[in-house]
Each structure stands twice: as C-alpha cells, then as structure tokens.
Design a protein around this nucleic acid. Structure first.
Lengths: 233, 233
DNA sequence: TAGCTTGTGTGGTCCGACCACAGGACGTAG
DNA sequence: CTACGTCCTGTGGTCGGACCACACAAGCTA
C-alpha cells in the first residue's frame, strides 16, 4: 500500500468507529504525518484524494472554516470523474443520456407529493417564464429544476448522480442549443413540458410523469439532432 | 485555483484536443512540473487525484507498464467515493440498495440476448453450483454475475456504478449472511433465482427478468432482516 | 553467445524551509 | 472601561532538493 493511502484507510476506520463524523476537523497535517508515521507530503497527497472524492474540505488560516473538515459531498467526486472520463472519450454521451433518462424517470415516479423541493421546482418554472435571458440562463434553471425533482425522491445517491450527470454534459448541451433553428419555439415547448411534469408529480401520477419526462428528454436531444450517437468530442 | 488542479485542467485540455488519449503516457513528473510552472510536489498531488478518479495509473520502473498512463476506469472513483461516504453515514444503505435495484432491473430489461457477457454469467452460475465454499465465495461470484448482466446491457456508466455499488456494501452484505439461519437453504434459493433471471434475459423476456431481479434482491435483504433500515454502521 | 553489470529514467518518499492567511491574545491609546 | 491596532500562533499551500526502489536496456565480460 502506498503511503498516501494510509490516510484514507485511517479516516475510514475513524469514521466507522465513530471517532470522526461529518463536520469533524481532522488533525493538522503535521500531526497526522507524525501519527501515521509518514511524511507530510504523503499526508497531503492522501488529503488531496479525499478532497477530490468530496469527503473533506481544506481551508487555510484559523477559525471555524480553517483546517481540514469532513464533509459529505459525493457529487464532487462524480462531477470530476465524469468530466474527465467524458473528455477521454471513455464515456459515450449516449450512455450518459441513457443513464440520465433512467434516473430522472425514477425520480418523478418516486417523488413524494409534499416535498418542499417541489415548491422550489415550481418557483424555478416561474423564473423561467419571467426571465428570457436566452438558452444559457434557461438551461441553468432547467438543471436546477431537474435536480429539485431528484431531491423530492429522497435518494441522496441518485440526486448526486443526476446533478453530476447534467454537469458533465452541460457544455455539450449548450452547444446543442446553439444549433437550434428557433430558440423561442423550443423554449416554449420545454416550459410547457416542465409544467406538465410537475403537475403530474404533484398530482401523484408517477407513471404519467415518468412518461412525460422520457418524452421531454428524448425530444430535446432528438430536436438537437444527436440521435443517440456516441460521439463525445 | 490551487496549483495541483492545473494538472487536471491541463489533462482535460489535452484530452479534448486529442493530443492525449486512453493508453497515452503522460510526461514525467519532473517534466510536467517544469512545463506547468509548478513544483513536482504539486504535480504529484494532481496526479494522485487523477489516479483516485480512475483516469490515470502510475507505475514505477521503466518499460510499457511504467510511467503515468491514461486509463479509463470510472468504477475506481465510484468505488472509493462510495466506501467513504457510506462510512461517514452520509449515504444511507437504503439509498444504495434502492439505487442498485433501479440499475439492476434496468440492466436485465435492456440486456442484449446475444451478448457474450451472458455466457460468462452462465459459467459463473455453473461455478456456484459446483463449488460450495460458503458465503464468501458465493457472494464473490454473485457479484460477478450481476456485473456480467450489467455489461450485457452495454452501458459503461451503469456497469461501473453497479460494480461499485456492490463493492461499497460488500462488507455489509457479508455481515448479513453471517446472521442467516441456514445458509444452504438460502444459497439454493438464490441459485434457483439466478437461473430464472438469466433464462428470462436470454429468452428476451425483459420485463419478467426485471420482476425476478426485484424479488431476488428485495428478498435477500428482507431475509437478512434489514427491512430497508438506514443504518450504515 | 550467454550472463552479469552498469546506466538511465520512472514514480515513491522524505525533509526542511518559507509563504499567505485568519483568527485570538494582548497591550496600548482614548 | 472601551476600542483599536499589533503581534503571535496554527493552519494549509508551495517549493526545491535529496535519496530510494524499481524495471528495463545497453554494454561489458567470460
């Protein structure tokens, strides 16, 4: 085992034993190095890994925000990993869209009708109606809308995955909208579909909502002309 | 931006530009440090992150296996991230089981009937019949069996997720089997179910296969007595 | 020609130093 | 007594240089 890995192993043990939890502050790098019998450089490498995985957050200075603190942000790891793997063409866009479809339909099917996240979703739709700041602003709110739906389903993992999935193909999506003939037309259709989806969820018609989501997503990509090709560049 | 991050950024650019691809060898750490105007320590921290995300693999010495080489192993990132987030109790076991259920039913529904992975799956079932080496060996082959099904569906992302999902709760599963009254009985039932699932997939009865998978997984956890509790310790 | 030796380049590890930063403790001027 | 400014301390961030184990390739040697 490489030296920097002992940090992860040690942390996992501490977490399992309950000696550390989310919000706890890790010992200083110098202290840890001595305690684990490795150099500070190795401790830092281990910490970088934990940071990349969304397990800790490092902050300089002193005070409550300083030091290395345990967080719980699995989306961070997925985000970074997906970005790079898409860039390396190892993850076909098709797979991501397919997965997104799967997760998203599941979310609306399992969303609880009275989740506060649904109110946030509704507010976002109102914003999209009011502000007409082009595809960029629209897509941003669109992303938040879908993430809100994920939250309503109450599964941390799936929520994180959905957020990262969207993030990993955000650039791609943005490029797609640039190729649309008339954005206004598309925008109106998408907003109409959003309303219908949310209404179905709030109305408890999960299966119907899932169907709408499927058409919504597939429709967008079809209109943008990718036809589930597996290009990623 | 912290210095070690320039490595990831640089790599993403190189990948996007097509100057590097999976299988390529990165410049040496010393060379990169000079090229990126950062210290070797920073380069190493950046490399550790990439390694943790499953984007590269580092090897010492010389020859084809030496140096830092670009790989495509998204499962590695998921694996590590899930392990730690489960340990920190940020990811309820319930969410993982739920997600696994979702992915796994999707897989058997979308598995192509003539995928070579299905033959591997069948071979694994034969092994499980022949070798009776207790829960440990059984669970290992069981995991491979489910991963094989994922491959048959032809989605890299979902395949990776499923593998990692299983890994993240492997310890947990192992502990569950220890509490079973009569392992032989359970084992026989599970094997029977595996056969039925595979038969349904090969027979093109996707919906039926999905149903069987759901019963299969839910049944196991129910029998083990967790009843979808959200403990993780 | 077969086998050993040496050379070279790789990542792995460590040390010690210095920096910027963000508070807390303290002392001083009002 | 209060308010402000200064110094101190501990944090992570960065750096340069050193040495190690390793694995292969080229070359020397028997």
């Amino acid at each position: 085992m490489r030296n920097h890995q002992v940090v992860s192993v040690w942390l996992e043990q501490e977490l399992a034993a309950g000696r550390l939890a989310i919000g706890s502050r890790l010992p200083g790098e110098r202290t840890m190095a001595e305690h684990l019998n490795i150099s500070r450089a190795s401790v830092r490498e281990g910490t970088r890994v934990l940071e990349a995985l969304g397990v800790v957050r490092a902050g300089v200075g002193s005070g409550p925000q300083a030091g290395t603190i345990i967080t719980g942000n699995p989306a961070l790891a997925l985000d970074a990993a997906l970005r790079l793997h898409v860039a390396s063409a190892h993850l076909p866009i098709k797979d991501i869209v397919e997965t997104r479809l799967l997760l998203e339909t599941w979310c609306v099917e399992h969303a609880s009708r009275d989740s506060p996240a649904l109110e946030r979703a509704a507010a976002l739709l109102d914003e999209m109606d009011r502000h007409h700041d082009g595809p960029a602003g629209f897509l941003e709110r669109d992303a938040l809308f879908h993430v809100a739906l994920a939250e309503a389903a109450g599964n941390v993992l799936i929520g994180a995955m959905m957020g990262s999935l969207r993030g990993s193909i955000a650039d791609y999506t943005q490029r797609l909208t640039a190729g649309l003939p008339v954005w206004t037309t598309t925008s109106e259709r998408l907003r109409r579909e959003h309303r219908a989806i949310l209404a179905a969820v709030v109305g408890g018609q999960g299966a119907h909502a899932a169907h709408l989501v499927r058409d919504h997503i597939e429709g967008f990509y079809r209109e943008s002309g990718i036809h589930r090709h597996s290009d990623s560049a």
